[in-house]
């Protein structure tokens, strides 16, 4: 989870329009291209899982337990005789849903809180103490506690993973706002009697977008990782639902007999997180304008 690495402010002196064209015009390096392709394939796999999977991923088959690769079971079966290939294909759905959902939710909650904390001192004092408290609880413990104490469904899972990620986003937005509000153009707006909400909306918020986009990709990757960790520990979604973490959790007992359970799901999970992180790095590099030293 490289989240806290990238909270340093990125100087962005470009229009939103320019920002988008920069992202689109980004001449991708080979690694970025490979990452994008990998991610695209995983997304397609999740969307068309019913077409790709060869069997029902939840169908039990006590007669064919822990089989190795065959024409019927491309990647073999697990301890309940379920088809590993189909389970791995379906597993992409939960991971991507959690990743995207959590990234969306953290921004939805974190952006307004960060704007308010950055601009209003009174809110800042209270809110940031609360965020400090939240930060002090290691994310995985908070998520474990929330998920296991409520019934684990997709929603509670996403909320459980979102809550510990919020302080990072709030801090990022807040620091960006604190830096920008010192700029002369914000003072000029104050002098022109621009209403506070317009200052927040027009002058301060757009300057948080560039680092926010970057941070979002890292939150997405971190959420996928946390979901898999929870499932792996046995405290995530019900073990019948095919998720990569659940497949690996099932595989723990039989690791020496059937290592493919852990390695197939683990490989896809790693590739998915890796490609999102690489895209995040690429976005950061292209949005971070090279500050040229003034030359005399």
């Amino acid at each position: 989870m490289p989240t806290h690495l990238h909270t340093q402010e990125l100087p962005a002196r470009y229009s939103l329009h320019g920002l988008v064209t920069r992202l689109l015009r980004l001449r991708p390096r080979t690694t970025t291209l490979i990452a994008a392709t990998t991610l695209l394939l995983i997304v397609l796999m999740a969307l068309f899982a019913p077409l790709i999977a060869t069997q029902d991923p939840t169908a039990l088959s006590p007669t064919s337990r822990l089989e190795s690769m065959s024409a019927a079971h491309w990647l073999g079966t697990d301890a309940y005789g379920r088809d590993l290939f189909s389970r791995v294909v379906y597993g992409a759905q939960v991971s991507l849903a959690v990743g995207v959902g959590v990234a969306f939710l953290t921004v939805l909650i974190g952006l307004p809180l960060g704007l308010l904390a950055g601009y209003f001192r009174a809110i800042d004092a209270v809110l940031m103490r609360f965020m400090d408290g939240l930060m002090a609880i290691p994310g995985i413990l908070a998520a474990i506690a929330i998920v296991s104490l409520t019934s684990a469904n997709l929603w509670t899972l996403m909320i459980a993973i979102t809550v510990p990620e919020i302080p990072q986003i709030v801090r990022l937005v807040r620091s960006q706002v604190l830096a920008t509000r010192e700029e002369a153009f914000v003072e000029a707006a104050v002098l022109m009697s621009t209403p506070t909400r317009t200052i927040l909306w027009r002058h301060l918020m757009p300057n948080t977008f560039a680092p926010l986009i970057v941070q979002c990709t890292y939150v997405c990757a971190a959420a996928i990782l946390t979901e898999a960790t929870l499932s792996f520990l046995g405290v995530g979604l019900s073990s019948e639902i095919p998720t990569w973490g659940n497949i690996m959790s099932d595989g723990r007992t039989y690791f020496q007999l059937q290592p493919s359970l852990i390695f197939c799901a683990g490989l896809l999970l790693s590739l998915c997180i890796l490609s999102i992180n690489l895209l995040g790095d690429a976005a950061r590099d292209s949005l971070d304008p090279v500050m040229k030293r003034k030359e005399g």
Binding site: F232, F263, G266, L269, S270, I273, L274
Partner: peptide
């Protein structure tokens, strides 16, 4: 970047597979 992205438990099992098994 690989170290960030590959989950700890996957790395653990890879190490077990290689060095122990």
């Amino acid at each position: 970047v690989v170290g960030f992205s590959v989950p700890v438990f996957v790395i653990g099992y890879v190490l077990i597979q290689v060095f122990a098994i």
